[in-house]
Write a protein that binds this DNA or RNA. Structure first.
Length: 761
DNA sequence: CCAGTACTTAGGTTG
DNA sequence: TAAGTACTGG
């Protein structure tokens, strides 16, 4: 029983109330995840079979951490039997299991947003529509919101209101596009992200036996971040919980920040209607932040009209005031913030992992990244282009996808002529047109030219046949050979490795691409090694979740001592001792697009609330009075959110004066706010980053002040041991060419290479 | 068919 | 600015 003593009173009652419908409204930092975790532990402790529990979290990483924590609390191996993960990952598995009911193959592909948009583009072009009026991203958004509201293509086309709307916006063909999109996805054996929820709803609606099975299986349902669920998610949960009504939702209306993807605060209000006997628990004590931070945030969120009344309070110390920094440009903002972090880290001996830079848009990361590199501060950017979305990675994955599912149209289009094998644009177009004519997949066309007549010359046909034979040979091994062996085989015989490995023009980008491929392969290798005896080591198994992985999920035990950079959206649920909230300018945050309606502005305000409440000890706000946008400088003024904070919590500060001398001003150039490319490389040896002092070796060359000479034997993380043959460049640009017996000659930037000296003579 | 070049145009957040 | 597209000449 001792674990219950680790909770406060309101947390404990919420945890102990394990039956019936329960809603927990939890203020920021009030121990929401803790309640969820302990509640599940308590349920298992009370004899509930973990197989009967389903917990839906916001990220897969959160699910993993919760599973680990539950294991710690109750011991034994039972925790891993709980079905836990994001809506998308949990239901993609359920969909695979029941795919045949819906006419999909078990190994259906999951289209990511890129795939979806590329397909839409193709459809729009095929309909000869103006791609200015029908921009793929707009069309995609429209279809996405239709699916999230469970509107089928047929009902979309027959709904007079929708038709009217589309006519008004001069896009009357949207219904037809939606229909074609759905057909093409189906023929390709592909589901997009929204389908994972949409099709789950179809499955539960049309197959009562399936519904009943999951109602019996998941007698207990828990949902985290309930304020950010959309209608499709709401209905899935409602249906599954309909028999036992053991449903627990946890959320905070003040932190609802995903209405753009259909999230609906209404779901919280509906809960009352759906489960009139529900019990409500409120968690209002904040354990995370200082009084200044909590009260400043409270003051701002109070300006929203739409909200459930609650009072978040804390017993923590008052703490420092919120610093407000104004700079002249976005570049100067980057330099100033990074210098602050650098100084604070060194001055107070804080690890870099204590620091986070949060911004409204991914694009803003750039100026910070530059300064971080100059000061040699370790950092990690989350979000933006994730590893799995990089071109070279998607290319190789497309081969895997195609091997697993021949009908995958987007994968086919990607690789049928990559690397170049002389299959031209017109040929590919003709294949697609024929596929649409016969209502089959492009693969059906090319796998057997006798079946469907198509206008392609015989030269191209031969090349295509070779391609088909190659893919088939991969498919033949996909279930039997282990993923790593086959992955390597595909990388090699597809020609991708060769393409990226050509000896000439090996710029840093080519090197990086090649390394990314190697990284993917080594990721597959560790997948194979970590699969248990009874689990499949096949490539098809590895592919199941790949489309659903994000940066936030990856947890590669690599050096965790880094500054974190991410959007406010991805920071939800996290906390950091020192938060730097940047780019607080009108039209950026709040976003210009959100200024039209009150509800949109209120969502921006909630976003601001989320951002501020990530901070435990200090929170710093910054804005620039001018900023580069598409190559030209635009001026900007401070965000209204700054003035919405009571002055008594603020401390205004300008970078150049005040606050004494910065340890690092000489490291980052302050005199040139309009970065003209004249910045001197950073070469001071006194400013070695803390992590390279602390971490593994004193001879690690994380910084550029090294004593490396031609002839030294060094060790590289990825390439192993090698001998330096050339050294060029100065300071941050210093490069070494190293001969690695196993990989040949490579040129690396010392700044990144993290070389270890093996012997120096 | 393909590579190199000129031109255009982005509006934001995620699984 | 930067990425993606359309065009041109081999």
């Amino acid at each position: 029983m001792s674990y219950l003593e680790e909770l406060n009173d309101s947390q404990r009652v919420a945890v102990e109330n394990i039956h019936g419908a329960t809603m927990v409204i939890a203020g920021a930092g009030s121990g929401k995840t803790r309640v969820l975790t302990y509640r599940i532990a308590h349920m298992i402790d009370q004899g509930i079979d973990p197989f009967n529990i389903m917990a839906l979290t916001f990220t897969n990483k959160a699910a993993k951490e919760m599973t680990e924590r539950i294991s710690q609390i109750i011991g034994g191996g039972e925790a891993k039997n709980v079905t836990m993960g994001t809506f998308h990952s949990v239901f993609s598995r359920i969909l695979r299991y029941n795919a045949d009911r819906l006419g999909y193959p078990t190994n259906f592909t999951i289209y990511d947003t890129q795939d979806s948009k590329s397909l839409l583009k193709d459809i729009i072009k095929g309909f000869s529509l103006d791609d200015k009026a029908y921009k793929p991203s707009n069309v995609f958004g429209r279809i996405s919101s239709a699916k999230n509201n469970l509107i089928s293509p047929a009902s979309y086309a027959s709904n007079p209101e929708i038709q009217q709307e589309d006519k008004m916006s001069k896009r009357p063909e949207l219904g037809r596009i939606y229909q074609a999109y759905a057909t093409r996805c189906f023929n390709a054996g592909a589901m997009d992200f929204d389908d994972l929820l949409y099709q789950t709803n179809i499955l539960l609606r049309d197959f009562p036996d399936v519904l009943s099975y999951y109602q019996q299986k998941f007698k207990y349902v828990l949902v985290d971040e309930y304020q950010d669920t959309n209608y499709a998610q709401y209905l899935i949960v409602k249906k599954i919980a309909a028999v036992y009504e053991n449903i627990c939702v946890v959320g905070d209306d003040a932190q609802s920040i995903y209405s753009f993807r259909g999230a609906n605060i209404q779901n919280i209000l509906n809960f009352k209607k759906d489960y009139p006997d529900f019990k409500l628990f409120k968690l209002e004590q904040n354990y995370r932040s200082t009084k200044n931070i909590v009260e400043a945030a409270n003051g701002v969120i109070a300006k929203n009209k739409d909200q459930i009344k609650k009072t978040v309070w804390t017993e923590n110390i008052e703490g420092e005031k919120i610093n407000v920094i104004r700079t002249l440009t976005d570049n100067e903002e980057g330099k100033t913030i990074i210098n602050k972090i650098f100084d604070k880290s060194r001055g107070e001996g804080r690890p870099y992992s204590d620091f986070a830079i949060l911004y409204r848009t991914n694009r803003q990361s750039r100026s910070f990244e530059e300064s971080l590199r100059k000061l040699n501060v370790p950092y990690k950017i989350y979000g933006g282009l994730s590893f799995y979305q990089r071109k070279e990675i998607k290319d190789l994955l497309a081969y895997f996808r195609l091997a697993a599912n021949h009908n995958d149209e987007e994968a086919l289009k990607r690789v049928i002529n990559y690397p170049k094998r002389g299959i031209g644009k017109t040929t590919i177009e003709n294949i697609i047109i024929a596929a649409n004519q016969y209502n089959v997949s492009p693969w059906d066309i090319i796998a057997d030219f006798g079946r469907f007549p198509v206008a392609i010359n015989s030269g191209a046909k031969n090349k295509i046949s070779e391609f088909v034979t190659m893919i088939k040979s991969f498919t033949a091994q996909i279930e039997t050979m282990d993923a790593y062996t086959l992955g390597q085989e595909i990388a090699k015989s597809s020609g991708i490795l060769k393409e990226l490995h050509t000896d000439k023009d090996k710029g840093p980008e080519e090197v990086e691409r090649y390394q990314n491929i190697e990284e993917l392969l080594s990721g597959i290798k560790s997948f194979v090694e970590n699969q248990g005896e009874s689990e499949s080591k096949a490539l098809s198994e590895f592919m199941l979740d790949v489309a659903l992985l994000t940066d936030a999920d990856e947890d590669k035990g690599d050096d965790k001592n880094h500054v974190t950079l991410m959007t406010i959206h991805s920071s939800k649920g996290l906390e950091f001792p020192h938060v730097y909230l940047v780019g607080l300018e009108e039209n950026l945050f709040p976003s210009q697009m959100a200024l039209n309606t009150r509800s949109e502005l209120e969502e921006e305000r909630r976003l601001f609330y989320v951002a501020v409440t990530r901070a435990k000890t200090t929170c710093t706000l910054s804005y620039a009075t001018s900023r580069f946008q598409w190559g030209n400088l635009i001026s900007s003024e401070a965000s209204r959110f700054i003035s919405e904070i009571d002055e008594k919590f603020l401390n205004h500060e300008s970078p150049a004066r005040g606050q004494g001398r910065s340890l690092s001003t000489r490291g980052v150039d302050f005199e040139r706010p309009f970065s003209g490319g004249l910045n001197k490389p950073f070469t001071s040896s006194s400013l070695k980053p803390i992590n390279s002092i602390k971490s593994n070796s004193s001879s690690s060359t994380g910084s550029t002040d090294v004593h490396l000479k031609v002839g030294y034997n060094v060790e590289h993380d990825r390439f192993g041991k090698g001998k330096i043959t050339h050294l060029v460049g100065l300071g941050a640009d210093k490069k070494a060419t190293i001969f690695f017996p196993r990989h040949g000659s490579k040129t690396v930037l010392l700044r990144f290479a993290n070389l270890k000296v093996v012997d120096s003579e």
